[in-house]
């Protein structure tokens, strides 16, 4: 049951990053691929209808984490207090910028909210990347299983570490890169005209840049936490996710070469999904590594709620998931294909 809920939690967080990641990427590229107001409205309209559905995956992850792993929620969320509030504020500002930007036809008004949109998305990509780095590297756990993480200490990876160090900063930058590539892939599929041309050019370059960056970050991870790779070696689940990664990489390459935009997006979606799930499989059963003393690490079993709660939760979680995808299906039916600004712009609200 504990492994099941660990899997559900990893699945929800991964899905969130895969789905909202393309919005982060589109936000990073907003000023690069869209050069005038009409083009910028096109980018916003491409992510407008579904961003809040994507964001619910994060909220749902929070809810599931309290329910299944209360102690993990308590330790990690209070330990990363300020970083989490930065994420929250960026999420809020990003949402406001999408919803409010289109309300006035005024040029200054839209430029201001576009700037908020770009700023919050870039910061979100960086923060989630840094968070990922922190999960892999570990946190300065004290004897009672809690910690408090400052933004930075001495940029080292042992002992009293901070949020940012020589491992997590490259990790954050790598995340920005791969999410930007993901976002560009999404934009090529959803847009037309000049935005489409620019995104298409970027997709090729960005995915090429991802390859050396990925090798570099893998080497760094090897140096920081070699035991993760042992986890992959001995866990058949990780082999399947690795196969997904390889197949997705191939799909991206084929999609770009043959100009099949759907295939590229499918590839980039499942590449991110596969990478993150591989990471989750490699971590298991540890949920928080310790940089102070290895033995202080917290495992999923240490943090899990009593068995009865987990069983009851599993009974309603799966039907709820089916419903959630049902809503997505209804919405997607109306939104397949390219966006059309005259049709897809914001209505009255």
């Amino acid at each position: 049951m504990i492994a099941l809920w660990y899997g559900i939690l990893a699945f929800m967080l991964t899905t969130y990053i895969v789905l909202d990641g393309r919005n982060f990427g589109a936000g990073v590229l907003h000023w690069i691929v869209a050069r005038n107001q009409a083009e910028r409205r096109q980018v916003i309209a491409a992510i407008g209808p579904l961003w809040s559905w994507h964001e619910v995956w994060l909220v749902g992850t929070g809810g599931v984490m309290v329910m299944a792993f209360p102690r993990l929620m308590a330790a990690s969320f209070s330990g990363c207090y300020l970083a989490l509030f930065l994420i929250l504020w960026c999420v809020l500002l990003r949402g406001i910028s999408i919803e409010v930007g289109g309300h006035l036809g005024d040029r200054l008004w839209q430029e201001f909210w576009d700037a908020v949109f770009v700023f919050s998305n870039v910061l979100l990509a960086v923060l989630f990347g840094a968070a990922l780095g922190n999960v892999a590297r570990g946190v300065p756990l004290t004897a009672d299983g809690t910690f408090y993480l400052p933004f930075f200490t001495n940029f080292g990876i042992h002992g009293n570490v901070g949020l940012l160090d020589w491992y997590t900063v490259p990790m954050a930058l790598f995340c920005v890169l791969i999410l930007t590539a993901h976002g560009a892939t999404y934009l090529t599929m959803k847009t037309e005209g000049a935005v489409h041309e620019r995104s298409l050019k970027l997709v090729r370059r960005l995915w090429l840049a991802v390859i050396p960056a990925f090798l570099f970050i893998t080497l760094l991870t090897w140096a920081v936490r070699p035991e993760l790779f042992q986890g992959i070696l001995f866990r058949p689940f990780a082999w399947t996710t690795l196969v997904i990664c390889v197949a997705s990489g191939y799909a991206i390459a084929t999609g770009i070469r043959n100009q099949r935009e759907h295939l590229t997006l499918l590839g980039s979606t499942f590449l991110l999904f596969g990478l993150l799930m591989t990471g989750a499989a490699a971590l298991f059963p540890v949920v928080l590594f310790s940089t102070t003393e290895p033995a202080r690490r917290l495992t999923a079993a240490d943090c899990a709620a009593p068995e009865a709660s987990l069983v009851i939760g599993a009974a309603w979680w799966f039907p709820a998931l089916i419903l959630a995808f049902g809503y997505l299906y209804i919405i997607q039916r109306h939104y397949s294909g390219k966006v059309n600004v005259s049709k897809d712009n914001q209505g009255l609200y």
């Binding site: 909220v59 209804i330 109306h334």
Partner: peptide
């Protein structure tokens, strides 16, 4: 939230 967020997008943009 999934119900609300899926349809609020459609309400605003659709």
């Amino acid at each position: 939230f999934f119900l609300e967020s899926a349809f609020i997008g459609a309400l605003i943009w659709g």
